[in-house]
């Protein structure tokens, strides 16, 4: 009798075990299905537009909802250029902060300062948007941009990038706002990899008479190269896909201007601005196709960044 009850309980336990294990596994598989679902939904939704325009969709600049002509070149250009501007600003500054936090900063200040920098990552993107529009854009328009136009505008070659009236909103402003947003991501990855650099290597360099900067630049940086690239690409992935902050300050103009000061658009801003107003299946489909383009772009960047960081984690584990 007693053994029978025990038997029953054991059976019940085993069934519960199977059920729980199955539930966790299903949830794990669901994460994969989510990605597959996103891909299928985007491809399905953008099919009409892709069928209509074929490859011309990404090589044409013209975007005219009235005549149903859609080309993604202008938003694609805006996305790439604004992200590159963001990287040009955020990478050196993020590097500087990471060096400061790992080398110079007094120990008791490390916590508060890194918390401050990382709080930048928790501020919602829409807040960056209104701040960029109402605070940053006027400042850039009245001081920085006229200076750029006066001093860099007349230069050969790169001068073209800084000509025309200072609009305040445009590619440059979007790039600046984006750089603030990706700064904490770049900085935190760099700080992590700097910290992983073996003390013995650094001490050996000090022993040879290297200055602190020599140690950072000639020992720590080469050692953590993979991690730095990973962090930068992670930031780039963020910048490419950022929507709200950019939508406020980009100016929403579907054209490619040589000037960085001119209004432009990005893929995400075009979708955010036009999606709910899009009439006609082709228009909606073209916007979803933009989304697919953005997805492919960010997926490649983020996936390579993660692969690099993953390799680093494994390598780091072995070395440790």
């Amino acid at each position: 009798m007693a053994t029978e009850i025990l038997q029953l309980r054991l059976q019940r336990e085993a069934r519960a075990e199977g059920l729980f294990r199955w539930a966790t596994m299903c949830s794990a598989v669901l994460v994969l299905l989510l990605l597959a679902g996103v891909i299928i939904a985007l491809v399905h939704g953008s099919w009409p537009a892709l069928k209509e325009f074929k490859w011309a969709f990404i090589t044409r600049e013209k975007w005219n909802p009235v005549t149903d002509q859609f080309g993604a070149l202008a938003p694609l250009y805006g996305t790439v250029i604004s992200s590159l501007i963001a990287m040009l600003i955020a990478v050196p500054i993020g590097f500087g902060i990471a060096v400061f936090l790992t080398e110079t900063c007094p120990r008791w200040l490390r916590g508060p300062i890194s918390t401050g920098i990382e709080l930048l990552a928790s501020i919602p993107s829409i807040v960056y948007g209104i701040w960029g529009l109402f605070v940053l854009a006027p400042i850039l328009q009245h001081s920085f941009q006229p200076w750029l136009i006066d001093h860099l505008g007349p230069l050969p070659l790169i001068g073209k990038l800084f000509q025309g009236p200072p609009f305040g909103i445009g590619l440059l402003t979007a790039g600046v706002v984006l750089s603030i947003m990706v700064l904490p991501f770049i900085c935190s990855v760099m700080r992590e990899v700097f910290r992983m650099a073996p003390i013995s290597l650094k001490e050996a360099a000090y022993g040879l008479g290297a200055t602190q900067w020599n140690v950072v630049w000639d020992v720590v940086v080469p050692w953590s190269r993979t991690g730095i690239i990973g962090g930068v690409m992670l930031g780039l992935g963020r910048a490419l896909g950022e929507t709200m902050a950019v939508t406020f300050v980009i100016g929403n103009a579907h054209r490619i201007s040589t000037s960085l000061l001119a209004p432009a658009t990005t893929i995400s801003a075009a979708i955010a601005n036009e999606f709910t107003e899009a009439v006609g299946d082709l228009y909606t489909s073209a916007l979803i196709a933009l989304g697919l383009l953005l997805f492919v772009l960010t997926f490649i960047v983020i996936a390579s960044a993660r692969l690099l960081l993953l390799r680093l984690e494994r390598g780091g584990g072995k070395r440790a």
Partner: peptide, 19 residues
């Protein structure tokens, strides 16, 4: 799953909206 999850973690949220 771990890898895909990390990618989803930094994927643009507007894509989720479209999805």
């Amino acid at each position: 799953v771990r890898f895909i999850n990390d990618v989803l973690l930094s994927a643009p949220s507007i894509i989720v909206g479209l999805f």
